[in-house]
């Protein structure tokens, strides 16, 4: 019986279309593409190099956090109950803390994994062959994004959990459930942040035909936000600073303006979100008037309140990601695809 079944499943003539082959949906094609892209990433040298850099950074930051904890210059006296979270936020001054490394290296990861997503396929001539298969064009772009985001999620989670594990061994002090959730939320925020940069670089890879151009564009945007944006803001701050004797409202307005400008930078958004998530003592992100503080208990915020505080940040980052994705979608759909051009 089994043999008969196999025989009947064999195509009668090799090149005649089989009816059941036709009925295949394009969702399966989408996952086929995701699988292929994912395995391409894992095999690539680029991924190995990136992971090495990030792992080294993690080891450095853990070391620095632990020496800081041992020497006791953390805020241990204030909130020893959140000791575990300090692995991520504390530094002995020689090396940046874990958040600092993620803020700095996350964009590099996003850009490096996405800058040649579309234009490399184009210049290798595989895009025109791929696009003449029965797949939707947007599926191609979605598959590129989803597979790379999966890679990013896997690596960030494994790094984060690895750091937690090492912390557990060194401190010998298990995290509370709340601490665990806070770390998990922090990791998800990091994925969204890297996802934003990934989308920026995919956008560039659709726009620029040369992989080097798109890599350069991505890196310069990253450097702009991590180095120059702060400088420009300083200039603006000096120019717009109110006189020392001006009223509280003027000072308040100035502070709010500076903060709003600051928040245009995705790394600033990410930083604020993480400080709130990993330091429950942070009660507010904007300036507070004295009357607002009066009567407030100097206790750490519960998890729900912290999330509420960073919700706009998350929304902002997601919105920026979507805008980039929408733009690359728009560009890609309208592009004519010829071989190697």
């Amino acid at each position: 019986m089994a043999l008969k079944e196999t025989v009947s499943r064999l195509p009668v003539r090799l090149f005649r279309p089989k009816e059941d082959a036709r009925s295949a949906t394009s969702t399966s094609a989408f996952w086929v593409m995701v699988r292929k892209e994912f395995s391409d990433h894992v095999r690539s040298w680029r991924f190995v190099i990136l992971m090495t850099i990030i792992l080294l950074a993690c080891i450095g930051s853990i070391y620095s956090a632990i020496t800081a904890l041992r020497s006791g210059n953390g805020q241990a006296g204030e909130s020893s109950e959140f000791l575990f979270l300090q692995i991520f936020t504390l530094s002995d001054g020689t090396l940046p803390n874990f958040i600092g490394f993620v803020t700095f290296l996350g964009p590099l990861m996003g850009i490096a994994l996405g800058f040649d997503a579309v234009n490399a396929e184009r210049s290798k001539g595989t895009l025109s062959r791929l696009i003449s298969q029965p797949i939707y064009r947007d599926d191609f772009l979605n598959a590129k994004f989803v597979s790379t985001l999966l890679i990013i999620a896997v690596s960030i989670f494994s790094i984060g959990l690895l750091v937690m594990g090492v912390g557990l061994i060194v401190i010998g002090f298990p995290p509370t459930p709340e601490e665990f959730w806070r770390v998990l939320l922090f990791l998800i925020t990091a994925i969204i942040y890297v996802g934003f940069w990934l989308n920026v670089s995919i956008l560039f890879s659709v726009r620029f035909r040369q992989a080097t151009t798109s890599a350069l564009a991505g890196i310069s945007l990253w450097i702009f936000f991590s180095v120059f944006y702060g400088m420009i803001l300083n200039l603006i701050a000096k120019g717009a600073a109110p006189a020392t004797d001006s009223g509280a409202e003027v000072v308040m307005g100035y502070q709010k303006l500076m903060q709003a400008l600051n928040r245009f930078s995705p790394s600033e958004l990410f930083n604020e979100a993480n400080t709130t998530l990993l330091m429950p003592n942070v009660r507010s992100l904007g300036p507070l008037a004295m009357e607002q503080v009066v009567g407030a208990l100097p206790s750490p915020l519960p998890l729900g309140q912290s999330i509420l505080l960073v919700w706009p940040h998350l929304t902002g980052m997601l919105a920026a990601t979507m805008i980039c994705f929408g733009l690359s979608y728009l560009l890609f759909m309208r592009q004519e695809i010829r071989s190697r051009s």
């Binding site: 062959r129 003449s132 797949i135 010829r338």
Partner: peptide, 13 residues
Amino acid sequence: KRRVGYMPDDLGF
């Protein structure tokens, strides 16, 4: 595209 095979002039793999 399901029923027609297309080989581009400068095809890449």
